[in-house]
Design a binder for these strands. Sequence first.
DNA 1: CGTTGGTGATCTACGTTGTATAGATCTACA
DNA 2: TGTAGATCTATACAACGTAGATCACCAACG
Lengths: 205, 205
Amino acid sequence: MGDRRQEILDAALAIADEKGLPSVTMRAVAERVGVTPMALYPHVGDKDGLLDGMLGRLLGRLRIADDGDWRQRLAVLARAMRALAREHPGATSLLFARPTVSPDAVRVVDAIYSALLEAGVPPADVPRIERLASTLILGFAVSEASGRFGTGTLNQRARRGQLPDCDLPGHHALAETLDAEVDWSAEFEADLADITTLIESYARR
Amino acid sequence: MGDRRQEILDAALAIADEKGLPSVTMRAVAERVGVTPMALYPHVGDKDGLLDGMLGRLLGRLRIADDGDWRQRLAVLARAMRALAREHPGATSLLFARPTVSPDAVRVVDAIYSALLEAGVPPADVPRIERLASTLILGFAVSEASGRFGTGTLNQRARRGQLPDCDLPGHHALAETLDAEVDWSAEFEADLADITTLIESYARR
DNA sequence: CGTTGGTGATCTACGTTGTATAGATCTACA
DNA sequence: TGTAGATCTATACAACGTAGATCACCAACG
């Protein structure tokens, strides 16, 4: 029974990957599964249920390492999350759109709790630091996948050309830096390093 | 001409605030403005254009302080962003959903650039730190508005009850901490302080 | 063997959505 | 007075999510 459900969710994810989230309609998913639209309802309940299920399936794919130092575990988890977002850019935007409390999501949160505790963060600070870290990691992944970070050099140039320069002193001062291409993987690693040092600073109290 | 457009966008924002984003339909907005649905099209172009316009109007409301120390300016901007998100929770979810490059958005980015430069962050690091800070601030605002952070104590209890405790060592170890109510304003200020110290650490190189 | 219950898929239909297209109305200037 | 441009309206259509009724199957029991 859960077998069919997985099949449906995977079909929905595939459609989102290929043609974008708006193309994920009950009819399209049904056709892909080889079934009538109404046949989906016993399995996912609802269109919203389908989207929630997609998100759950996404988080379910996250492999949670349980070996190694807390730094390694955190890094592995973060990189896996980003990889997932790049693999499924369409579905990634759901991460900030709906408040999922699926078992898979809780499992991920728990892994971060454990890492923070092992690092030595005071228990009273752990929930907040977890939210900070996951917001940053998820935010990065979603921003990268949804294009919020800008789609490259072209965009940067267009940005500056679009408005009178005199109104944008910051952009003006950074002109040459902004024209350089961004290595997003390097940026992600740098952010991860910043999170790690932040955690270490909390552990030293 | 832009007058009518503003009126339309404000009507759409009002509907989103009152009845949620899914209730923002062309017909509902038109009725609120006192006009036929098709009359909206010359002004917003499209349904997506309407949503983009709503986001732009939101960012346009952000007052950007130009007096005071960079710390103060950053803090004022961040708090204004959060206040805006709490005022318009429905429209806030658009922030991570669509890659807006409106003049207003660029203005905000530029304000952060200026603050970072004044703080003494090396120019090569400024764009990344800006993305880090804005991702965190926006992520917090969106998470709070959309309920991703969990809706309170009830939710935390439900979370732990939902799964076998043995599988969740982190939650188990933090049991009493997780039952405490969260002061979201205090958490936001703490995050803001963490961002500030991070910026200072980059300025010291 | 026939009957029964329950599980899942199907068929049809309805209201709502975004929007293409064509026509109506008003303003301003010659 | 007439004409061009801008703005709103009327009508229509395809696609969407899904309620409701029906139907096919298949194990279990008499």
